[in-house]
Design a protein around this nucleic acid. Structure first.
Lengths: 221, 221
DNA sequence: GTCTATAGGACGATAGAC
DNA sequence: GTCTATCGTCCTATAGAC
């Protein structure tokens, strides 16, 4: 139907439209299952028209991830400009945000698994992302544990690796809970997280939410 | 080179070879990224030769998953024929087994994410699998909690009470830890699990543990 | 900035010989 | 049980007109 009668959008707006549509499609089929033709069709474009904006299929994926990074950074600064949140508060905030954008969470879940192999175009991105998140959360965990006198025994009473262990635990729980959430259409992520992980952190970490984070945690998975 | 000089294997043996090779390739690229040509090449076959055995691409995936089910069932009965293990013991046993077959773990990680969308050929399989595992683990968790004196009144009250929450927590942690393991080539899954989740279950499940899992909440499913 | 046209492969699957 | 040959479809990407 709509062949020539499509409005010619300005480039930035068109780009946003492309990224939005592509995000949904990548979330559904992964990168290997994504077809440029489908993306173009979803935007009312032809394939060459689409390629004019993103250069290549890999370029499209990179554009998606960069756009996601920008959005996350924006949302996070907004999230952290109030009083410094405690670790469980921060987790809850991230979960609350993710609960409203299942498409994005699914995008990261699919790409994170798909990109485990080194030749995936998003492999390096996700390795770097994983390291960054682990570092940031570990720093926050260090503050949280330091503020809690009895915190040592729930975290493991083990070596000095306690903060990193706690960070890894949180990341693992978040990833796993989100997967369960995505597979159960009726469920609510906030509720699922509170039930599954809430009282795992709260009674241990909560006393006086002090500490000066200055670190960022990115949402996603 | 090797064109006609390939040994003509008997069907069952050839089938096993195909499934083994395909398992590795699906683990690397997912189902959408899998090409029958690659599978055929890995087996020293042409594509029609491969299709003769598995019927179609979907048929190949089903064959892979069915073979996996059979293997898992075999390993599990072997695992459970001794004295009934406690919940953390069972977890450790599963982790120990998975640590030896990263390829299989990766297969499930990739397919589990990829099959979140309903039109994926393995969607129904993974929904059923998730339900089955949740039920089994919940039953075990009920026993574990029942053995805890302080948890006597936990069960009941609400729909999907404490045992299911514990089961979900274990599943989430396992999925998340395995993802972290797969992304860090040097790491050891047993160690990672013990550090991240080990003492999360032990102090809670032992009669005198000070853990307090008394928490009612509903979790969607 | 978007189009038509087309190149150039790779894909899954079928038919039929051996 | 495996092959050769081939079909039709889909893909990413390029060239050049408007």
């Amino acid at each position: 139907m709509a062949r020539h009668d499509r409005t010619r959008l300005p480039a930035p707006e068109r780009r946003r439209q492309i990224i939005t549509a592509a995000t949904r499609l990548v979330a559904e089929r992964g990168f290997w299952g994504l077809s440029m033709q489908d993306v173009a069709a979803a935007c009312g474009l032809t394939v060459p028209g689409l390629l004019h904006h993103v250069g290549s299929k890999d370029g499209l994926l990179i554009a998606i991830l960069e756009h996601r990074d920008a959005e996350d950074a924006r949302a996070l600064t907004e999230l952290l400009d109030g009083p410094a949140p405690t670790l469980p508060e921060l987790c809850a905030a991230v979960v609350r945000r993710n609960a409203g954008q299942p498409e994005i969470v699914r995008l990261f879940a699919v790409l994170q698994a798909e990109s485990l192999t080194p030749d995936h175009p998003a492999h390096d991105y996700f390795v770097a992302r994983q390291q960054r998140i682990l570092q940031e959360l570990t720093a926050l965990a260090k503050d949280a544990i330091g503020a809690d006198a009895s915190g040592a025994d729930i975290v493991g009473a083990d070596v000095g690796g306690a903060p990193e262990v706690l960070a890894r635990r949180i990341i693992a729980l978040m990833d796993g809970v989100q997967l369960q959430w995505l597979r159960s259409p009726g469920s609510d992520l906030n509720q699922l997280w509170a039930a599954t992980a809430g009282d795992l952190l709260r009674p241990t970490m909560i006393p006086n939410g002090s500490g000066s984070p200055g670190h960022h945690n990115r949402s996603g998975s």
